[in-house]
Simulated scan of single mutants.
Amino acid sequence: MLITSTKKVLSTLLLLALIPLTYLTVVTDGWQFVAHSTSISSTVIATILMMLAVGIWSAQLGGRALWFVPLTFTGLMVIGTFLSYTHLSLAMANAGILLSVVVMGILICDGTRFSTLVAAGIVGFFALSHGYSYGRVLANSGELEFYLAGIVLTGLILNLSGELSAQFFMQKSSKHIRVRVGGIILFAGIILIMSY
């Protein structure tokens, strides 16, 4: 009974996450670059993986990290977007996005535990790169409001999906599942870096 209801909740959350992603990639002119650029597509995939990974790692950390770490990621991603509209420059923002997936894969796979503030600092650092990179692309599109609404909604839904997945799948055989999930994220990050 619990397994069936958890699967339904996860399926619903993942479908809800697709709504803003579909809107951002198909409807708005500012996101038509996704279909035209392999490198940008890699960063979009990396961002989706990062959002799920933040949720998974938050669930592993438990306690305050369950809400503080995902909210930090989302908030600093928004701040990173606004930074792209200033004269500040974040060198290697795209590299930071791709590296973030590898780092999160390692942290999940290893079961690394930090304090909530340190964990929030790690994901926040990478969130600035994610937000800044997308903000640069959107700077001339006039689609900032749609992007911000979509990224906040999608981010929180994917973070929650990651948390629920971690709590559901890692209950019984936590080490084996943790290593597999972290390994998949790590491997995906390496593939994304190689294809960039």
Rank of each mutant, 00 (worst) to 15 (best):
L2H: 13
I3C: 04
T4E: 14
S5M: 10
T6R: 08
K8A: 15
S11H: 07
T12P: 02
T12L: 15
L14I: 12
L16A: 15
A17P: 02
A17T: 03
I19P: 04
I19Q: 10
L21V: 12
L24P: 02
V26I: 14
V27R: 07
T28A: 09
D29T: 13
G30N: 09
W31L: 14
W31Q: 10
Q32W: 07
F33R: 03
A35L: 10
H36A: 13
S37A: 07
T38K: 11
S39A: 13
S39K: 06
S39R: 08
I40E: 11
I40V: 15
S41P: 02
S41N: 10
T43P: 01
V44C: 08
V44H: 00
I45F: 13
T47M: 12
A53R: 00
W57M: 05
W57F: 12
S58T: 06
Q60H: 09
Q60M: 12
Q60D: 11
Q60R: 05
L61G: 06
G62E: 13
G62M: 09
V69H: 00
T72H: 00
F73P: 00
T74D: 04
G80K: 00
F82H: 05
T86W: 09
L88E: 06
L88I: 10
A91Q: 09
A91D: 10
N94L: 12
A95P: 01
G96S: 12
L99T: 04
V101M: 06
V103C: 01
I106L: 15
L107M: 15
I108E: 06
D110A: 11
G111W: 11
T112H: 10
R113E: 12
R113G: 02
R113Q: 13
F114N: 11
S115Y: 07
S115I: 06
T116Y: 09
A120I: 01
A120E: 00
V123D: 00
G124T: 09
L128A: 02
S129K: 03
G131I: 10
G131S: 13
Y132C: 08
G135S: 06
G135A: 13
G135T: 08
R136W: 14
A139R: 05
N140I: 12
L144H: 04
F146A: 15
F146S: 15
Y147F: 14
L148C: 11
L148H: 08
A149G: 10
A149F: 15
G150E: 08
V152P: 04
G155E: 04
I157D: 02
I157F: 15
I157C: 03
L158Y: 06
S165I: 08
S165C: 11
A166E: 06
Q167C: 03
Q167L: 14
F168Y: 15
M170V: 11
R178P: 05
V181P: 01
I184R: 03
F187L: 15
G189I: 00
I190C: 11
I190H: 03
I190D: 01
I191W: 13
S195V: 14
